Computed example of a mutant assay.
Amino acid sequence: MAATTARNVTASTIATGKSKDRNLASMIFLAALWFSLFFGVMVLLALIIDTLIEGLPRMDSQLFTEYESTIRKDETGFRAGILGSIWLMLTTAVMAIPLGIAAAIYLEEYADKNRWYNRVIEINLQNLAAVPAIIYGMLAAAIMGVLGFTYKGIVLGGAIALALLILPVVIITTREAFRTVPQEIRDGSLALGATVWQTTWRNTLPSAIPGIATGTILGLSRAIGEAAPLILVGFATVRFDPNGILDKATAMPLQIYNLAGQPHEAYQQAASAAIILLLAMILLMNGLAIFIRNKFQRSW
């Protein structure tokens, strides 16, 4: 009887995730966890409020239409950085998303998990997702050298670095989206005579699009705020608009980094305004990902 009661209590604790153990050590540990969470949130909130106070007066049209100026510092703008970031994101999306989805389709629908090379790919994917961003910049610089580019700081080099950065994220999230599609849909399609490719293209892939879109948007929202890989491929401050993937360009994170370190108050104020703009873009992309997931997600 006592053993049965103990098993029931243990099962209830596991099921609910709650325990009635309220000794001093557990309470101290719980208080430390809440204090850590509270302290981190308060520091972040203080930084955001300070940035808003400093940067809101510079949220004007000149921030979007003017270039970085060494003469009229109070009118310096981020036009080159904004356009450069747009070029980078478009080129990164074209390079990373189709390749990532194709790799996920192969690994999830075609790959034999008993083969050694597929297991090696699986392990490497998990490891690549945790590699520091600056390593991808070094790899992109090496790729540009192999391709024969002798000049640095072009859109293509930055896009290669950012595509390599988000590629593991795209592959992993796409595979997770494929796993949410019930196996019965595949079995039914195959039973009607469809091939594996027809089943994947007409049934599995359309059903997984909400999860794929969410993962890719979140990956791009991470890439838009990265500066370290771009520094490695030679990105610097430029004062003109890029017109193609082989043109030199800059990006908003790099301009923010450069201006925030300047002693002039006008530059620091412009950097704060650009931080607000970059945060708004990232929050907008994350909100779009949440909307797509909630709007188009299916319940099986």
Rank of each mutant, 00 (worst) to 15 (best):
T4W: 14
T5R: 15
I14H: 13
A15F: 05
K20L: 09
N23E: 11
L24D: 15
A32Q: 12
W34H: 12
L44V: 13
L47I: 11
T51Q: 07
I53S: 13
G55L: 01
P57H: 05
M59H: 00
D60N: 13
E66S: 12
K73F: 15
F78W: 07
G81W: 01
I82Y: 09
G84C: 06
I86D: 04
L90M: 12
M95A: 09
I97T: 03
I97L: 13
G100P: 01
I101T: 03
I101L: 11
A104P: 07
A133L: 07
Y136D: 00
L139M: 10
G145D: 05
F149Y: 14
G153K: 00
I154D: 12
L156F: 12
L167S: 11
I171W: 03
T173S: 13
T174H: 05
I185Q: 10
R186T: 02
G188W: 05
N203D: 12
L205S: 00
P206D: 10
S207D: 01
I209H: 06
I212C: 06
A213G: 07
T214V: 03
T214C: 12
E226K: 02
F240E: 15
D241N: 12
G244W: 14
P253C: 02
P253T: 01
L254F: 11
I256P: 00
Y257G: 11
N258H: 11
A260M: 11
A273I: 04
A274M: 04
M281Y: 14
L283Q: 02
N286Y: 04
R293N: 07
K295Y: 08
K295G: 08
